[in-house]
Design a protein around this nucleic acid. Structure first.
Lengths: 160, 160
DNA sequence: GACAGGGTACTCGGATACGTCCTGTCCGAGTTACAACGG
DNA sequence: CCGTTGTAACTCGGACAGGACGTATCCGAGTACCCTGTC
């Protein structure tokens, strides 16, 4: 049970983008920020664009920017966009092969084990849904007030 | 982010074993219960044995049984035994490549994103740790009182 | 000097290999029961 | 009849292939800028 590496990159990139509003930042600069492979990060940014989290523009002066207010982008949105919407625990309804099975029953709902696992994942997703990119950015600013300026200046230096 | 298939098998097998205390049940019979591949289920049961959840005996009259009281076996124990102890989200500390990075800092602890993800997974694991195999078994009995007898008789029928 | 048109450079987007881990299978080590044999 | 010994069958345990998905990369589609030529 391991999550895609790109989730971490996507989250950091979204926080950085929240500090450069109205400006299209290229995948190249976003990748250079943390020495990440450009093409692969681009792939993740594409997924975020398909999910409606980012908006993209091609060509010179092109790049990515947040498609909506960072208060409306939750960590869960990013996880779902990159890692997919499926739950980690997939009930294969093996009870259907057991004794006294009812072919009509939906064992993903009936099976007690499935219920417990789904419940646990639900609390996990709820927790992620309650945290927005804006919350993260605010917390970072609280710990390091110069972070937004540092990000913007670094974007500027990487412009060449 | 998908969990090993074997987790589901292991949980169902542990519940069934809780209804056959003191009896060594072979992997063959446990697999026949749900038409699962015997050798692969055996692999999962081996993992549970290494984790101290089951005890195994070789040879004729051999098999597996719960190594301790089902009240002391949590769903988290099984997940950890089969799927490994690592968190799904792995902070690769990409901030170390960023501007103003501190090589001495442990960014798995400092990074706000890492904190948020770890916090969410903690609630998930807490939820799983709070549910024991005995709890699951009791709930199944409440919904279907004849389940333990059905399981025992099926084990007996599969003895040949 | 101003404007139109073509070319060029730059960026996103999807299609294409590579590596790792889950899935599935097989054969050997260990142990018990049984049967045969001798006392 | 009872004890002993050897054999055989059965089970767990770890080592061995196959496939799916995450990781990484490359080339084509689209767009804005710039340079050139003309009015």
């Amino acid at each position: 049970m391991k999550m895609n590496e790109g989730v971490e990159w996507a989250m950091h990139s979204c926080v950085n983008l929240s500090w450069a509003p109205g400006e299209a930042v290229t995948a190249k600069r976003l990748a250079a920020f943390y020495n990440l492979p450009t093409a692969y990060l681009n792939k993740q940014l594409q997924a975020l664009t398909r999910a409606g989290i980012l908006s993209s523009v091609s060509g010179p002066k092109g790049g990515f920017q947040l498609a909506r207010d960072p208060r409306n982008i939750s960590l869960l949105d990013i996880v779902v966009a990159i890692d997919g919407p499926d739950d980690a625990f997939r009930c294969m309804e093996i009870l259907k092969e057991g004794p006294g099975a009812d072919a009509r029953a939906d064992y993903t709902k009936v099976c007690v084990i499935s219920q417990a696992m789904r419940g646990a994942e639900l609390t996990y997703r709820r927790e992620l849904a309650s945290r927005s990119i804006a919350d993260i950015a605010d917390e970072v600013v609280r710990l390091n007030p110069s972070a937004p300026d540092n990000t913007r200046s670094r974007f500027a230096n990487l412009k060449s």
